[in-house]
Design a protein around this nucleic acid. Structure first.
Lengths: 198, 198, 198, 198
DNA sequence: CATGAATGAGTGTTCATTCAT
DNA sequence: GATGAATGAACACTCATTCAT
């Protein structure tokens, strides 16, 4: 028998697909349960509420992304190369697990009320990923590879541009495979935050 | 007495605030109606359904944004200047009407199921804005001010970076006024899509 | 059309019957609604919750009983006669509206958790009746018709003995009509709280 | 290891506390099981259902009370003294085991649907206690110490008055210790069923 | 146009009970 | 006997929408 943690992940994996496809509110607890052959009642042995599943799900995704970024951050390469590796890693992941990325951009960013009780909750559930991204940015600034500017500008450039391509992809408007965009995207991102005419 | 169209806009204005603050699903038709002193029944004289209000709302926002961009596009200035004007215009608008921008980024992009019946609906309800943005991009490429690359890359850079700052702003994590970011953001956006070392 | 208050009373009347017969927990909101030809949703236009219906119901009963007792209290007769009138009035009421009395003794006294949030809520929802009973007792003590003793003793004698016969009646163990017990019950009650050998 | 019967009593003891405090319907089988460090599944090795636990519990209480009354009944003393002893014994028991008395008056009398399948089930589960009380009453009447009246009147007087003080006690409205009320209560009860001017 | 009472399908959650281990 | 994961029917409450007035 699967242990508790394994089963939780099984639920999350299925929920991510359903939430990202049909939205949190149009996905019923019964749907999630049934999708993995589990009874409704038993679902509640693993998550105390539908909402807590949403929260655990974003933590799950955030950790996955953080791991990939951490692996890149730990290498002794230039920031430019790091960005290239990250974009590639991100797009491969998006191809393989669109539900995770889409969950992040659609459900997490689009339905803040699910994740925030008070006004200023920030991105606490995506902390792990955001922190790792911060590391990359800080390191790039430190090494003078990135313009020494407001952190939030950098953050918007990296996360924003990737978010942009993600939305276009999820709406099926892109005419090429994601892989195709790796280089041009990394260059764009790099240009946006680095000094012109290096 | 207000004519039908005026009243529709009144409803939309109030709905935008509520939808963007609490989400579409947590805003009840009764709440919207009450917020402008209207009865529930009467609401349905102006919109056939809650969902149609959501659609009209995004068209409303898209038109507003398109107008601003159109005004900029019509000027005889460099693309670089256009981007600067657009960023400024955008951030001023975001300051004045966060509900509109947030509605666009959160409700519209985050709850696609509300606006898409089939799989490939694209951004039909934001068409006016997207088209105008396309004009700016195409013009910049034509004039060799932007790298002649895939349109979607450019789109992701412009809309993505602005989206990034928008999310940071709506989560109250920015420590300065939006105005502060105008120049650095426009430079970043411009750098991302233009040739290096101009 | 019935006004709001009339409809509330209609709901309460029906709920009293169902609650007292099958218990609060075995009576579904849908049952109550259906019993008076009302939809479930509409029920909630009159009461915010099932629990609030239970509370309103006991207030309703308490008021009815208080009224009867008040009418008796206002007469210029001896306490002995008051008790006789009250017992008669009570038993007639019990015959005519067993659901009200049974609701009081079974649901209200038997399911305190429904009516008490904190530990010491006392009998706040039956206040009107209890207050009127207190008046009768205080008056009898003042006029030296009742032994000058602890109020709670008197209260237990009056309410307790009536409660006793009420339970026997609701269990269908009594072999005679309630009317039959009027005199012996009033004498017993009177004896229990008055001086022996008057 | 405890034998089956001992464990049943252990369950009952804990259940009495929880049922009397929070009500039958707000006490979950899992709560009862956990309260004595037992698994849910194992609970069902001792009681076939939650409802049967409720029934066994009232029999348990009824037997305890019957025993005390039996001991008193067997003494060669006047009915007046018996009543005094019974009241004392009752109040001491109530002080020591409020859960048992409260279970009787609240859960058993207040939720008849739990104990009665048909309409006329009487007090079958409290038979032992009721029978013993009947013995005391019959004996008093026989010895002309009590008025020769309807049995149910006597029953209501004794059980009702004790029930009255019990409710007041369980609602924490009494300002003195229960012991304080022993004499006045026994006198009141005795007066209520005996001839005036003995 | 305007009202708001009425509808009723729908949903998150609970919990007594079962049963494989 | 003992465990606790699994079941699934049940229920309070919601809310978009309708419609009589």
């Amino acid at each position: 028998m699967l242990n508790k943690n394994k089963k939780e992940n099984l639920i999350i994996s299925s929920a991510l697909k359903m939430f990202s496809k049909n939205g949190f509110y149009n996905t019923k607890v019964a749907d999630v349960a049934k999708s993995i052959g589990m009874s409704v009642g038993n679902f509640y042995n693993y998550f105390p509420s539908k909402n807590s599943l949403a929260k655990s799900s974003i933590v799950f995704v955030s950790k996955k992304l953080a791991m990939k970024l951490k692996y890149i951050n730990e290498q002794e390469i230039s920031s430019k190369q790091k960005i290239n590796l990250f974009v590639k890693s991100y797009l491969v992941f998006l191809t393989k697990h669109p539900e995770m990325i889409n969950y992040f951009f659609k459900v997490y960013l689009g339905n803040r009320e699910l994740f925030c009780e008070n006004e200023d909750c920030g991105f606490e559930f995506a902390k792990e990923f955001v922190d790792e991204l911060k590391k990359m940015i800080d390191n790039g600034i430190e090494k003078k590879e990135f313009v020494n500017q407001d952190f939030f500008i950098c953050f918007s450039c990296i996360a924003g541009i990737l978010g942009g391509i993600t939305f276009l992809n999820s709406e099926n408007v892109l005419d090429k495979d994601l892989e195709f965009y790796v280089d041009s995207l990394s260059i764009s991102i790099y240009k946006s935050i680095s000094y012109p005419c290096e």
